[in-house]
Amino acid sequence: MNGPQDLGGFHGFGKIPYLNKYEPVFDSYWEGRVFSMSFATFIKYFPVDETRYAAEKIKPNIYLNSSYYERWLLALEILLIENNLVTKKEIIDRENQIKKNKKK
């Protein structure tokens, strides 16, 4: 697929960032969580090519403006919905419920 993921040879991104020697495996709690949710569902339900294809379905403007684990999360959402494991409505309802509980 000729999408934004096909970055080999692109010009203009600039110097390589993050060349310091030390960095944590995950920058934040939610990066670790997104990784483990994806990992656990990938090995159980989705072949690796399907997971990559899901990442490639993220819209170019979003892809190029998101962080690595943000893309994982968006790909996970696509996979869960496409495979009928979770529906979009369930996700939105749950988000609203979490927001509501927070306000209380």
Partner: peptide, 20 residues
């Protein structure tokens, strides 16, 4: 690479609770 936005944290929380 920025921190997760509030919106994405909410999405992650929702998906996590549904998966569990």
């Amino acid at each position: 690479m920025s921190e997760f936005s509030e919106e994405l944290i909410l999405k992650a929380k929702a998906i996590e609770s549904l998966l569990i």
